[in-house]
Nucleic acid binder design. Structure first.
Lengths: 193, 193
DNA sequence: TACAAACCTTGCCCAACAGGCAAGTTTGCC
DNA sequence: GGCAAACTTGCCTGTTGGGCAAGGTTTGTA
């Protein structure tokens, strides 16, 4: 374990974060279509060309926060014993992640909710969630047995991620209800037999 | 019921279909990135500008086949009695749709499978499936009762559609296995408690 | 049948964008 | 210190989405 992953890596993470935050802020302020990649890059004190080295488009930059959360969730899943019921593992990871979100960078939730009313983003959010689908499926495949392990793992991963996505979406539309509640209810509704 | 929805509508449907087929064929032949919107429009004997009147990008054109299938599935769902278990309704609709796909335009399945190996499309396929999510959720909400009807309907819709998507994806990667098998197995793995 | 309104297609246009390339700069490592 | 790998930047090109307005087509109505 390298405590400090090297200056280069830290700088990259910093620029990526700066770009993400600039994108998110500008998108909230001026609407997604009102923002240009150039404006985002300027705000992050970086050239437009460099933006392209980090993200393939503004939407990807906007959802980098979600991406980081999902990566963290993968960790939480991998940390758990392999002899537990897969859905139990997933549920626990989801709830822990939600707690962390509240304890730590609650910022995320707040700004995330302000994206409400920019519906053109929906498809890109979905895309962000499906990026980790294969990775999660691979992890789950190790925890399954019987027939069709590959397919069942993919289905389980997709079902879980889509449920999390719906929970977050629903939560942005009902900001008064605690996210933890929504996640709980959503997972309960999706729990496989 | 109007048997013939008018000349104008028929022409539009024809153009849309021509664009879709051109997009699909060219994408299979030359790879998704190797095709320009202009080439697609040319092949369909229509101006580049007109393409934009029908689709927002080549990927949307490519997945128009999936979109039509999903619209058909919505019909199959609406046709069913409202006092059945929602998941039963969904399962039945999925199986009927799969049968229809085999009986009628088997073309779809064949060409669809040839898209394997163009992974950049994955996110757009997901997008195509989520377009109908709200519509399906609305339909399901009428068939649910109890608490959290709105959320549960959205979760159910999302879970079902994502399962269908995974089934189709998996089927393109295992072309030897009948699609009906895959759909069955996927739905069984996702069936909620 | 005539005709007006609604609707489609097309060409022209422009700002935005992704990404290849090469020169200059920074970081990692010995 | 010094070299190699990696990163940033500017420049450039082909592609793209979509606004606009001039024509042509379809539809509904009289």
């Amino acid at each position: 374990m390298d405590e400090t992953p090297g200056l280069r890596e830290r700088k990259k993470a910093a620029t990526r974060l700066a770009l993400h935050e600039a994108a998110l802020r500008l998108a909230i302020e001026q609407g997604v279509d009102g923002v240009t990649v150039e404006a985002i890059a300027d705000t992050a004190n970086v050239s437009r060309r460099t933006f392209s080295n980090y993200f393939s488009g503004k939407e990807e930059a906007i959802f980098h926060g979600d991406t980081m959360r999902l990566r963290r969730m993968l960790e939480l899943i991998r940390e758990q014993p392999t002899d537990e019921q897969p859905w139990t593992v997933l549920t626990r990871a989801a709830l822990r992640l939600t707690e962390e979100t509240y304890l730590g960078n609650m910022e995320w939730l707040i700004r995330r909710r302000q994206l409400r009313g920019h519906p053109s983003l929906a498809s890109h959010q979905v895309a962000a969630y499906t990026v980790v689908e294969r990775e999660l499926a691979a992890e789950l495949a190790d925890r399954l047995s019987g027939d069709d392990v590959g397919l069942r793992a993919r289905v389980l991963a997709a079902v879980f991620l889509t449920t999390m996505r719906v929970a977050v979406q629903d939560s942005t539309e009902h900001p008064d209800r605690p996210l933890l509640d929504v996640v709980n209810a959503a997972l309960a509704a999706a729990a496989p037999a």
